[in-house]
Simulated assay, not measured.
Amino acid sequence: THGQHAVPATFGYKIAVWIDEFIRHIDRLKGSEERVFVTMLGGGAGTMASVGMEGLKTQELMAQELGMHSMQMPSRTIGDHLTEYITLLAMLSATSSKIAREVYTLMKQEFGELEEPVPIGAVGSSTMPQKRNPRLCQDVVAWAAEVRTFVPMALESMQTEHEADKTTSMMINSAIDRTCILVDQILNGLTEIFRDIQIFPERMRANVELSGGLIMSERIMLVLGKEMGRQKAHDVIYQAAQNSVNQARPFKETLMEEQELVERLSEKEIIELLDPEKYTGLCSYFAETYSKKASILVEKLRK
């Protein structure tokens, strides 16, 4: 967290978080369908003056034919439903961008935990032959940023004067058209990224060890806290952690110098508490649970 080691977490946990967000995006989009996808036949100003009740019936028949819903209050000044749609798509794009940015970051040599598909023969640079660039991730991030720019325009388009205004119609039409195209590109981009993404668990494990065991501070503090109280335990482990960083020494060494710790825990117990694989909490549970939820959702969407 905040760019620093916190506690161990699995890649499956990270995926579960993304799935959870996507489930909500889909729920919101489905929940908006009756408001967003509507037909309107209200005449020049929406008053139905030229068509009367027959116009409402015709509007309903149009909706049935198109698989949409009939606009309850037909008016050319209403734009909140279209703005809602663009906002929902922008939220979906924001999550997609976050995912792509994470893959982009973890693809850096400094991390080396993931790699998006890089086709054989792909050239990353005309002057640097070694380059394997995260092209797809960069595309998704850029497209998503563009989608978000249309939210203010959509909100502005709701400021329609009187009963119709070409200015705001032009704005919302442009926003809708471009947003839908971009979201299609974003989702296709994510699909391509994860269809053949490479995962390097050995590098993930090595990266956990970069802090020399400091990532396990919380676990040791909680165990010690049962013996001497949480705050006192925090002070003891804090001192050992700061000594490890400031003196560039392994965390285990500085822990063993804390008398109040070694009086209560053996060296063997301390070594066991420094194992990150035994402190991943409910990561496996979340990964398995949301993997199943994703599979169920995919089947529903395919029907």
Results as ranks from 00 to 15, higher is better:
residue 3 G to W: 04
residue 3 G to N: 14
residue 5 H to W: 13
residue 6 A to D: 03
residue 8 P to W: 10
residue 8 P to T: 14
residue 11 F to H: 06
residue 11 F to P: 00
residue 12 G to Q: 04
residue 12 G to R: 06
residue 18 W to P: 00
residue 24 R to H: 12
residue 30 K to W: 01
residue 34 E to R: 15
residue 36 V to R: 01
residue 36 V to Q: 04
residue 39 T to Y: 08
residue 39 T to H: 08
residue 41 L to E: 05
residue 48 M to L: 15
residue 49 A to W: 02
residue 49 A to N: 11
residue 53 M to N: 10
residue 56 L to Y: 12
residue 57 K to V: 12
residue 62 M to G: 01
residue 66 L to R: 13
residue 69 H to R: 14
residue 76 R to W: 05
residue 79 G to D: 00
residue 79 G to Q: 07
residue 85 Y to F: 15
residue 89 L to R: 06
residue 90 A to H: 06
residue 91 M to E: 02
residue 98 K to M: 05
residue 101 R to W: 05
residue 102 E to T: 06
residue 104 Y to A: 03
residue 106 L to E: 02
residue 107 M to G: 07
residue 113 E to R: 06
residue 115 E to N: 09
residue 115 E to H: 08
residue 116 E to M: 01
residue 124 G to Y: 13
residue 132 R to A: 06
residue 138 Q to G: 11
residue 144 A to R: 08
residue 146 E to T: 14
residue 148 R to I: 01
residue 149 T to P: 00
residue 156 E to Q: 15
residue 158 M to P: 00
residue 158 M to A: 11
residue 161 E to L: 11
residue 173 N to S: 12
residue 174 S to M: 10
residue 176 I to R: 10
residue 189 G to K: 05
residue 195 R to W: 08
residue 195 R to I: 07
residue 196 D to G: 02
residue 202 E to H: 14
residue 203 R to T: 14
residue 206 A to N: 06
residue 206 A to Y: 09
residue 210 L to V: 12
residue 219 R to E: 12
residue 219 R to Q: 09
residue 220 I to S: 07
residue 220 I to C: 07
residue 226 K to W: 01
residue 226 K to Y: 04
residue 231 Q to K: 14
residue 234 H to T: 07
residue 237 I to W: 05
residue 241 A to N: 08
residue 242 Q to V: 13
residue 243 N to C: 02
residue 245 V to Q: 15
residue 249 R to D: 06
residue 250 P to E: 05
residue 252 K to W: 02
residue 253 E to H: 09
residue 253 E to T: 13
residue 255 L to E: 02
residue 258 E to W: 00
residue 262 V to T: 15
residue 266 S to A: 08
residue 276 P to K: 12
residue 280 T to Y: 01
residue 282 L to N: 13
residue 284 S to M: 07
residue 288 E to G: 00
residue 295 S to C: 02
residue 303 K to R: 13
